[in-house]
Simulated assay, not measured.
Amino acid sequence: MEDDSEQDNLIEDDYYAFMNVPRNASNEEIISAYRRLSKLYHPDKHPNPDHKKEAEILFNRTRRAYEEFTAQNALNIEEIGVGTFGGFVEYGAEKKVSNYTSLSTAVRVGVPTGVSLRIRLSRGSQSYTFPIHLCDEIFPAPVFYATVAPLITWTIIKKFIIDPVVKEQKERSKEKQREINKSMMLEKQKEAKAAIELMKATFSRIRSEEEHRGGIVITKALYGRLVYPQDRVLGEDPTIGLRDEVIDVTIPLQCLVNESKLVLHNATKSQLPGFFDPCVGEDKQLLVQYLFHAQIHECIIKDNEPLRIPKQSHRVNTT
């Protein structure tokens, strides 16, 4: 079970988040996002040799994301059934213990076989079956206990054994997960810094256009584990009193503004171009301070929350 929990916390590419499209994105939305990023990272637009090399990496990642979208075809099927054969009836239930482990029980009632209970433990490609013959004749009591006893036993085992063990494993594996992710995080950090360098010309153009039309101008955007003093005032410099791991994402966020609108979908923001995860395994937030019609606005959202700005409710009352 420890291996399963560690796999859940590994840094993985989320191409939906990278391209900033919803999970149910249409072909038109995916193509539009692909064209926008391809235009931003195309190596021919960056004559500087160092920038050109970084642009090739990000351009190839954009292309891989698009290829992944076109190749995806996943189907999940869940099936529950009760079957009869000859002189017996069999019914049961299956419970997923972890990503690779499941436990199932089945009660068989038949003539002349009587009542039996079968417990099956599956782990990966291996299965272990434990048949228990309860009686040769069909009586209500054995059928009842064969049905109820596994449920009660499972509830007790889960509450007093499995849950405490899983909780302890998660706590112990947190630091281990950080080590596993460290090299990947450094690579993501390097990629994010390179992306921001490539965005600077686009950032200046979009910011200038938005200032001219009185649209969205991102004045400060921070991403990470935000912890502030209790007396912080809305609208003040968000870096004052900040005590934990955050990164400045003002430039990449401004580059996502399109015609005075900014839309982020319900996915982790760490995969957005110019972002990276500064505190793997911790709860993160995104703080955005922006001007709209020359008025100060501010909002804070959780990592996986969607965001649409501008909003009247974000406006900061400065009087």
Rank of each mutant, 00 (worst) to 15 (best):
E78N: 12
V166S: 14
F59W: 08
K174T: 08
L58W: 06
L117A: 07
T84M: 00
A65D: 06
M185Y: 00
V148I: 15
I157P: 01
F69K: 06
P150R: 11
N60D: 10
R172L: 15
F160T: 08
T105S: 00
S125Q: 13
L58Q: 05
I80D: 08
R108C: 04
G110P: 02
I156P: 03
P140H: 05
Q126N: 12
F69E: 02
Q72C: 01
R118E: 07
L58A: 03
V165K: 00
Y91E: 02
R63D: 10
L75R: 13
E137C: 04
S127M: 07
V89H: 13
M185K: 05
G114F: 02
V166Q: 13
Y91F: 15
Q72M: 12
T105V: 09
I180N: 09
G124T: 06
E171H: 07
S183N: 08
I119L: 13
V165S: 11
A93D: 06
V89N: 08
Y66L: 03
K170H: 08
R178S: 09
V109T: 04
R108N: 04
L134V: 04
Y128E: 09
G81T: 07
L58S: 05
S104I: 05
A106W: 01
Y91S: 06
I57K: 15
S173D: 15
C135V: 04
F139T: 13
E168I: 14
E137K: 13
C135N: 09
V115I: 05
R178V: 13
V111A: 11
S122E: 11
G110L: 04
C135G: 08
